[in-house]
Amino acid sequence: MSKPVLDVRELRKIYGTGEATVHALRGVSLTVERGDYVAIMGSSGSGKSTLMNILGALDVPTSGQYLLDGVDVSRLADRQLALARNRLIGFIFQAFNLIPRTSAVANVELPLAYAGVKPKERRRRAMAALDVVGLADRAKHEPNQLSGGQQQRVAVARALVTEPALLLADEPTGNLDSRSTDDVLEVFDQLSLAGRTIVIITHETEVGDRAKRLIRLVDGSIVLDRRQAPVLSAAGRHSL
């Protein structure tokens, strides 16, 4: 059996000191195999965002070990960490986080530019990624000319353009209406079918139902971890 994409052991995160100490994570252990589609659910304050930020190498745990594709991320220096974020992780934010006043295709190209891909190749791969999310015709639009759902799909294209081992999505549909939510979830379903490893954080059951595996987080600890048959949306309702 190949090594897991994600291997987290006894992860703890403590904010503040003294009486104001907050235990955001109280020893979370988790492994995610290649090709899995995991939804992490929990109410606000359950530590799911903290977990996601640590998984995305945006934050560091107070203690515990985090192996990403076999690499111990908690022991990496800034330079290697940047490399890991670039090559191994595709991060999708709740607030989209596209670079303002920069065209969609330029936004998607950005991670490739930091990876040192040549401009021509970069443009080709960015357009291919935009095509996957169904926005090839909006490549020249700037973020403020796109709807929320479109912006989030551009962000998904940006996350998957480097072919990362892991796609991480932090409440990707939190800022979207139901129709745009469907559009974005459709993209995730397709990516999962194509064999991508996806970890998604959400508090919406509708989103959680689509995943192959559901993890419920309460007060910084995992209380539920079960496999489920993903509920696929009616095929063809929204074309990609």
């Binding site: 945006l58 940047a82 490399l83 890991a84 090559r87 986080n97 670079i99 991670p111 930091y114 480097t162």
Partner: peptide, 12 residues
């Protein structure tokens, strides 16, 4: 914006 760029893997 700097945060976004770092999250996308831009070295310091």
């Amino acid at each position: 914006e700097i945060g976004i760029r770092k999250a996308l893997g831009a070295p310091r």
